[in-house]
Write a protein that binds this DNA or RNA. Sequence first.
DNA 1: CGTAATATTGATCATGTTCAACGTCGGTGG
DNA 2: CCACCGACGTTGAACATGATCAATATTACG
Lengths: 244, 244
Amino acid sequence: MDREGGQAQPVLRRLDALHRLSEAGVAAIKTAVRDKILKAAAGEDLVCEGDRPDSVRLFLSGWAVRYKVLDDGRRQIVNFILPGDTCDAHVYLFSKLDHSVATLTPVVYSELSREAFERLVSSDVSVAEAFCCEMLAASSIQREWAISLGRRDALERVAHVICELYERLRVVGLVDGNTFAFPVTQMDMADATGLSAVHLNRTLQELRGSGYITLKDRSLTIHDFQALSNTAMFNLNYLHLDRK
Amino acid sequence: MDREGGQAQPVLRRLDALHRLSEAGVAAIKTAVRDKILKAAAGEDLVCEGDRPDSVRLFLSGWAVRYKVLDDGRRQIVNFILPGDTCDAHVYLFSKLDHSVATLTPVVYSELSREAFERLVSSDVSVAEAFCCEMLAASSIQREWAISLGRRDALERVAHVICELYERLRVVGLVDGNTFAFPVTQMDMADATGLSAVHLNRTLQELRGSGYITLKDRSLTIHDFQALSNTAMFNLNYLHLDRK
DNA sequence: CGTAATATTGATCATGTTCAACGTCGGTGG
DNA sequence: CCACCGACGTTGAACATGATCAATATTACG
């Protein structure tokens, strides 16, 4: 295990960006994470709409999406789940999940039972507050997606998700220069932005054409973040990564 | 004060629908609510994007909306705030608000300082859990809006919000038969559904034309909930009002 | 009664969808 | 090793949903 937090590192980086963690808190999280580490393959459903939620998941590596499908098959991805993200703190308070979560890549995550999670948050105030911030931040991201879907056009939407993913990945150390792994198919991107696959493809070409990004071999490079974030009207406040 | 909970009644009804409250919890909420009751006129901003959040609000009567505007003026309403709703439990953990809240009607709400709110949630487990459920339910609603905005067409979207508002108002006793007060202008509805005001108007006419609803004088009647909810593909699971 | 906000209508326009075909790449089994 | 297959990406053309613009009711209210 490396000296920066072992497998828990992304979780620690993310939570600490949202809310300063005490030393005791950091230790408690490291211990809790270590307890039950699971893996899943790409393209797997981790949880399904209708399931009874019983545990909390802390994502350590890999990408997943939160999504929902309508009766006639239309699918909407409502969020990306990245390393360091918490999948539904406290959900076990509900009897049924209202959405599904699918992996895009192989993922590694730590699964905490309700008891383990409650023990963790009651062990240290800063930890409880950090998880609270994580919930609030997730809501805020969700709201910003509503803005995009409701009021931004195709080009703005695509530029916006890219900016968001860049910033979120940066916090957990997954951006190298201006380049990061981007294991998302165009169909997934279309379902995330509320566009058709065809139009998404053309929109990506427009962004490539103007030289803002390169996207090739599941790797994305942002050449001009300023321009990209201007076209998206991206403002990172809503990510709340400034830690007060 | 009436024997059903006084001014706190909608809050109690909503929280209790999400998660069973203990008697002590009910009492604690009643007391906390009573402490600082405020009023605001219609069309007022209660909080603005960028403000430092310092208190939690429990809505007792009236309607408000959570919204955000882009630099060029496009506005998206991301949620309606109804009597009984909690406006941002725990937000004071963040340094800046990422959205604004405006009243649609005169509203009455109880304002709890950070200290008062923390005292309240630590006084009783069922209260803490209920507020947790309220946060989770708000997230869930937010996700469902993303589905609507991303993947439902105009008719479906409008039908969907109406179903949602009907169910949410019913829980707090604000539906009389199939009729409820609906103090939302067509422009607001347009900003909530991501449509233009013109197209929203035509969509409403379509719903009226098929006999599903009547909307007149700020009062909405649903004549055929089944048909309305079918056209919206509405499934109330996401509201989590079953209190399991 | 007058004025501003809201609702309604028609006509034109644009963004994005749909459909259908083709290209490309990586893996898999004969 | 190569042929096949499936998933993904790309292209063009026709189409449709909803936006925009502009004018005209209607309503609420001071």
